[in-house]
Design a protein around this nucleic acid. Structure first.
Length: 862
RNA sequence: GCCCCGGUAGCCCAAUGGCAGAGGCAGGCGACUUAAAAUCGCCACAGUGUGGGUUCGACCCCCACCCGGGGUACCA
């Protein structure tokens, strides 16, 4: 009987269990790892660290539940697991809070961190709390400055004037990722382009390695992420071709992926907003100059959205200039058109309208000539040319019907493979061979060469913001860059008091005289750079800082990196699929080149979790469809929420909170927990004496679950745990009973398994089972109990069910020995009455026996 | 437009080319109860988006298409 004064000891009460275990964990600090002198194998499991904007939300609940399963799993498998956490605590939201509410960004940030930290502890995350770091701490960001200066030294950090995204409303530079469909991500204002002098990291120097090394990650990273990275780097191989322009001082170089079509280049197009276009127009007649200027004005008025609309008409203006096709010697007109981009390749192209859709659209719109140079109707087999010049002489390959090769008429460019025609020395070759031959040809004449182009741009790291790492550079009166000496680091961020954070187009730090005014090491007056670094710099190397976050002598200890890094398992959201991961990979390669680390990829394996959504929609404050983390924990308990995250489905899928049942998870945990109070056999009971049927289930479970966890099939692992609990329930109620030793064994296995998903419940079960050894400290916890080995003898079934199909349909089944042979099984099948009936008077064509599972009898089809 | 992922019961999801169902939610029935809740037990429900193909045998492999989601887009 229960009443409020005498709570039922057998009622599952998550709040009570949490209150019991939390202080014990706090005292034991079970997940702190020292630099291990121990001989245990090591794993580094890292969850992407959070940005401290308010309390944790359901997305955090998912990622930290999943990361924790992995960390706890490897611990259970006998590894020493490094599982640290910190905060990505620089960034714009703190500054926005300052503007909106007058809060000090520092105070706002650290208050949020304290709240998130408390929530994480409540959530039973198995972090090593001795290694916490915050990127906004001077002892962290001084090493950002060190990294910057080290890269500056190597020429990998440089300053240049360039077009950047600019929000006219917020008065600040926007990173590429902050421009969504041409508009400012935060305020919705149409982004503008502005020419500013900014700091860049030379990531393009690493483009090839960043691309090629992705092959090492194949299978260990989601293929989706690999694809996104490859697309982002966007390497194109082809050739640079020099075109002489009449009356222009030097040849103009274009990039093309199709040098094979050079004989079909019938005009040239330059980007209207490029320097080249301005130069070419400058030398033209006043009419042309005016037409060009008008066109340029029109182009520059266009928004990014308009520009990216591929369906709009191809506009352009003739520059009254002619280039010489280097292979045909023909004069070809030069146009300016905005379908050619100034910042890709060389900002100019050779147009081959017959074989490029964009060029064809343009040619048709402006009456330019079209020359077909690839017969795409001709058969091509592989890379070897199928047609020899002799064959051409003999007239063997029939020229294609002209009507079939008329892109001007059809409007469809011929982009496929084929055989070269109208191309002099390239005639008869396949596309691949013609590309090779064309490059040889150009190289021989010195008018071209093999070349590669990338979509990847250098990484703009300057931000006109307060809450970030100051860039450790100063400028003397004549504008000379002077790096801050390493022993003068950190360049401290001044106190926020009195600083106007309102966007005004320049960094708030510019208004702090005490910060700006300084002197160079040799005593000259100088002004500090007032920008701060992109926060992606902070997160590009934080995984190394966790190895010794309090090291005041270096960013990280290379010896510790040797021991722990790279990260064995990285866990986080797919929203970081490109930038964060690319930057971390880049910085890792830089550190490798500088000799600080011995590996070139920071994250050996990556798990992306999906999003937690509600009613099919992303949760957001503005939609009013938020599910609150704390409320869920209050209502159902930590373990039920964690278990729900694991059970909802494959981790990479989104979880619709409407589709899952946290109550269901809680009920299951209660079922499991109750069993731990029903076991009556002693701790040392010999399971071998227990119920064999239950033992088979238990040991099959022990054998299967590790593979499921390693394949991230957490939902299946939970389902298997439910299955085991059901089997125990049945054995207790209607079988061998609660005193059976196999029941104890099975319940203990459930506790060990649940320690991955539901740490509080598992620990409580372990204790109720009499397994908790307080004297053993953390080793007395179920979290360190270790996975049990399955007994192979119990994995062999005594009998298996063989089925007999007739023409693929199941007709009979019987129990057979697992060691039965094909012949014997076939004989049994043929003897079956049900099978005979199914076969009827048809003739048997074939019998396939796959002992011991299946026999398929195929009859002759009428 | 191009690339990738998915489509299995009312719902979420399982299923080395071998009986379509492991697990759960919601539902129904029953046991327990004075009653209800909780608990325990039992039950039903799909032939795997569509159309072809390969195979003795296809949710699984191949082709085409439909639907949903994501990525990317004048990138030469």
């Amino acid at each position: 009987m229960t009443d409020e004064l005498h709570p039922d000891e057998n009622a599952y009460d998550p709040a009570r269990i949490e209150a019991h275990w939390a202080p014990i964990w706090d005292e034991l600090q079970p997940f702190t790892v020292d630099d291990p002198a121990d001989s245990k194998p090591r794993k580094y499991v890292l969850d992407m660290f959070p940005y401290p904007s308010g309390d944790l939300h359901m997305g955090h609940a998912e990622v930290y539940a999943l990361g924790d399963i992995v960390a706890r799993y490897w611990r259970q498998q006998g590894f020493t697991v490094l599982h640290p956490i910190g905060w990505d605590s620089f960034g714009l939201p703190a500054e926005n809070a300052a503007i909106k509410r007058g809060a000090d960004p520092r105070q706002w940030t650290y208050e949020n961190i304290a709240q998130q930290k408390a929530s994480m502890k409540r959530y039973a995350t198995s972090f090593d709390w001795s290694r916490v770091l915050h990127t906004s701490d001077p002892e962290y960001y001084r090493w950002n400055q060190w990294l910057f200066l080290t890269m500056y030294e190597k020429g990998l950090a440089y300053r240049k004037a360039s077009w950047v995204n600019w929000c006219p409303n917020d008065q600040t530079v926007l990173a590429n990722e902050q421009v969504v469909e041409g508009a400012c991500e935060r305020c919705g204002a149409i982004a503008e382009k502005k020419k500013l002098t900014q700091w860049y990291f030379k990531i393009t120097d690493y483009a090839d390695r960043l691309l090629d090394d992705l092959n090492q990650l194949e299978g260990a990273w989601p293929s989706k992420v690999l694809t996104m990275q490859r697309n982002w780097i966007g390497r194109s191989t082809g050739a640079d071709v020099d075109f002489v322009i009449e009356g222009h001082h030097s040849p103009v170089t274009v990039f093309t992926t199709r040098p094979d079509t050079l004989f079909g280049a019938t005009f040239m197009v330059v980007a209207p907003d490029s320097d080249l276009a301005a130069e070419l127009a400058a030398g033209a007649t006043p009419e042309v100059r005016m037409a060009f200027q008008a066109y340029l004005d029109e182009v520059q008025k266009k928004t990014e959205i308009d520009r990216q609309d591929t369906s709009r008409e191809k506009t352009g203006v003739f520059l009254d200039r002619f280039a010489i096709n280097p292979v045909t010697g023909e004069r070809i007109p030069v146009w300016a058109a905005d379908y050619v981009l100034a910042d890709y390749g060389h900002g100019a192209i050779m147009a081959v309208p017959a074989h490029d859709q964009r060029d064809l659209d343009f040619a048709r719109a402006h009456g330019l000539p079209v020359t077909v140079v690839v017969d795409t109707n001709a058969p091509v087999t592989g890379a070897i040319p199928v047609i020899t010049p002799e064959m051409l002489e003999s007239g063997d390959p029939h020229p294609s019907e002209p009507a079939a090769l008329d892109p001007l008429a059809t409007g469809e460019a011929l982009t496929g493979d084929g055989r070269m025609i109208n191309s002099g020395p390239l005639d008869g070759l396949s596309k691949q061979n013609a590309i090779k031959r064309a490059i040889e040809l150009l190289e021989g004449r010195g008018t071209g060469r093999a070349s590669k182009t990338y979509r990847l741009r250098d990484w703009l790291i300057s931000r006109q913001r307060y809450w970030g790492t100051p860039i450790p550079i100063m400028y003397t009166d004549d504008g000379t860059e002077v790096p801050v000496p390493l022993d003068a680091l950190p360049v401290l961020l001044p106190d926020a008091a009195g600083i106007d954070m309102k966007p005004k187009g320049t960094s708030p730090l510019g208004g702090v005289a005490a910060f700006v005014e300084t002197t160079t090491p040799d005593g000259q007056p100088a002004r500090r750079d007032t920008d701060t670094m992109d926060t992606f710099v902070d997160s590009s190397w934080y995984f190394l800082r966790f190895l010794n976050p309090s090291d005041s002598t270096q960013a990280f200890d290379p010896a510790l990196a040797e021991k722990w890094a790279p990260v064995d398992q990285y866990v986080g959201g797919v929203e970081h699929a490109i930038l964060h991961l690319l930057y971390a990979r880049f910085i890792t390669k830089v550190l490798f080149d500088l000799g600080y680390v011995s590996f070139t990829e920071p994250f050996s394996a990556l798990l992306n979790q999906g999003m937690v959504i509600l009613d099919g929609a992303k949760m957001s404050k503005s939609k009013g469809n938020l599910v609150y983390f704390t409320e869920e924990l209050d209502s159902y308990g930590v373990d039920a929420v964690r278990l729900t995250m694991a059970f909802a489905g494959p981790p990479e899928d989104d979880i619709d909170w409407r589709d899952v049942s946290v109550t269901g998870s809680q009920k299951f945990l209660a079922r499991a927990w109750r069993l731990s109070g029903e076991v009556t056999s002693p701790v040392d009971a010999d399971p071998a004496m227990g119920d064999q049927a239950l033992r088979r289930v238990t040991h099959r479970f022990l054998s299967d679950v590790p593979g499921l966890i390693e394949a991230f099939k957490f939902n299946v692992a939970v389902a298997r745990t439910m299955e085991l609990v059901n089997a125990i329930r049945k054995t207790v109620d209607t079988g061998a009973g609660p005193a059976d030793a196999a029941v104890r064994e099975a319940v203990e296995v459930v506790a060990i398994a649940l320690s991955l998903f539901a740490p509080y419940t598992a620990e409580d079960m372990w204790s109720r089972l009499g397994r908790r050894d307080e004297a053993a400290g953390r080793d007395g916890l179920v979290a360190f109990a270790g996975w049990r080995k399955a007994d192979p003898m119990l994995l062999i079934d005594e009998t298996v069910t063989a089925i007999v199909q007739v023409d693929g349909k199941m007709r009979d089944k019987f129990e057979v020995s697992p060691t039965i042979g094909n012949d014997e099984l076939e004989a049994l099948a043929r003897a079956s009455e049900a099978v005979k009936r199914a076969v009827g008077d048809r003739e048997i064509a074939q019998v396939i026996a796959r002992a011991p599972r299946i026999v398929n009898i195929a009859t002759v089809k009428p």
